[in-house]
Design a protein around this nucleic acid. Sequence first.
DNA 1: CCTTGACCTTGCCATTGTGGTAAGGTCGAT
DNA 2: ATCGACCTTACCACAATGGCAAGGTCAAGG
Lengths: 138, 138
Amino acid sequence: MNIGEAAKASGISAKMIRHYEGIGLIEESRRSAAGYRIYSNNDLHTLSFIKSSRSLGFSLDQIKQLLSLWQDRGRASSDVKALALQHIKELDDKITELSAMRNLLQNLATECHGDNRAECPILQGLEQQCGEAKAKKT
Amino acid sequence: MNIGEAAKASGISAKMIRHYEGIGLIEESRRSAAGYRIYSNNDLHTLSFIKSSRSLGFSLDQIKQLLSLWQDRGRASSDVKALALQHIKELDDKITELSAMRNLLQNLATECHGDNRAECPILQGLEQQCGEAKAKKT
DNA sequence: CCTTGACCTTGCCATTGTGGTAAGGTCGAT
DNA sequence: ATCGACCTTACCACAATGGCAAGGTCAAGG
């Protein structure tokens, strides 16, 4: 099948499929005489795997590792689990960070009347060291 | 003060201060005869405001709006609150999305023995339509 | 046989926020 | 005069994705 069909079937845009090929996440596909990329059901299977992994928030780099484990018949499931647990931790950290932001901001917003007056606890909060919300960069 | 001191005092890197100036988030600063940027306490105040806002996860674009409201003595606090509530929603959405990922992945990881065997429910999960985790892009 | 529309190709630019690096100017102290 | 610490600008990079442009291809219908 052509890239358009593969895109529709896998849920990954044609653009991205080409990109994944370009960065070596997937192998270069076969080509028709005219140079069109051709995908097999097996290729589609791989694309779907990538799609699922992206949906769970894995980075392309992590997916590269997942793919090689996936294709390695002799892998140890502990290696996969380690990767998964690491990602869970990343997700947890991010969730914690965002929740802290959310709560601080919610507190400020609650105090704010939100009327026509200029007095605003939100701006006042930002003006002070409310930045103490030790938010780490991603 | 020079940019280095302003950076240290505000917690924003010199690099970023220049960048913020470049994109028009802050006004161009005064310059010494030699071309060095010079910052007043007032400028520092602004930088700290930006730092706080970034810590709460506001985008530079949102901060641009916050700054203009902050500097507008006649603003209505409702405008600020609207901005804040919108951002809270963004945070909530993101948290929800990440939590869904986390929970799905956690479920898979729990089922995985994580031993030397090749059998791995995590990979099996990715292989199937576990991508049903309707994760929206950011 | 030719046109039209839908598809494919490559390549380059933009995004968001931040870091790095390089080549050079300046300043204060020794 | 020179050294180290600072400043300047101007590029490149990241991650993952979208968009556009200029051109080739293919199948259907006239």
